[in-house]
Amino acid sequence: MRISRDKANKLAHVVADTLAEIDECDFLEDRNTVRQEARRVLEKLLLEETKIDAAARLKISSQQRIILEGTQEWDILYRKYYNDEVKRLGI
Rank of each mutant, 00 (worst) to 15 (best):
M1D: 12
M1A: 14
M1W: 07
R2D: 15
R2C: 11
S4Y: 09
R5F: 09
D6F: 12
D6H: 13
K7H: 14
K7Y: 15
N9Y: 09
N9D: 13
K10L: 13
L11G: 05
L11N: 06
H13Q: 09
H13S: 12
V14P: 01
V14Y: 14
V14H: 12
V15A: 13
V15C: 11
V15G: 04
A16N: 03
A16D: 01
A16W: 01
D17G: 13
T18Y: 13
T18W: 10
T18C: 10
L19I: 06
A20T: 01
E21S: 15
I22A: 08
I22L: 12
I22H: 03
D23I: 09
D23R: 15
D23Q: 14
E24M: 13
C25S: 00
C25A: 07
D26F: 09
F27H: 06
F27M: 08
L28E: 11
L28G: 15
L28N: 11
E29A: 14
R31T: 14
R31N: 10
R31E: 15
N32I: 09
N32D: 12
Q36K: 09
Q36R: 07
Q36E: 09
E37L: 04
R39S: 05
V41H: 04
V41P: 00
L42Q: 01
L42D: 02
E43M: 14
E43W: 04
E43Q: 12
E43C: 11
L45W: 05
L46K: 07
L46E: 03
L47P: 01
E48G: 04
E49V: 07
T50W: 02
T50H: 08
K51N: 10
I52M: 06
D53P: 02
D53H: 12
A54W: 06
A55N: 08
A56Y: 00
A56D: 00
L58Q: 13
L58K: 13
L58C: 05
I60P: 02
S61M: 12
Q63M: 15
Q63Y: 13
Q63C: 14
Q64L: 15
R65C: 04
R65H: 10
R65V: 10
I67F: 11
I67V: 15
G70Y: 07
G70Q: 03
T71G: 11
E73A: 10
E73T: 09
E73D: 09
W74H: 15
W74S: 03
W74L: 08
D75W: 01
D75R: 12
D75F: 00
D75C: 01
Y78M: 05
Y78Q: 05
Y78N: 05
R79M: 03
K80Y: 03
K80H: 08
Y81L: 04
Y81E: 03
Y82P: 00
Y82I: 01
Y82F: 14
N83D: 05
E85F: 02
E85R: 06
E85C: 06
E85K: 06
V86A: 02
V86Q: 01
V86Y: 02
K87L: 04
K87H: 02
K87C: 00
R88Y: 02
R88P: 00
R88Q: 08
L89I: 03
L89K: 11
G90C: 10
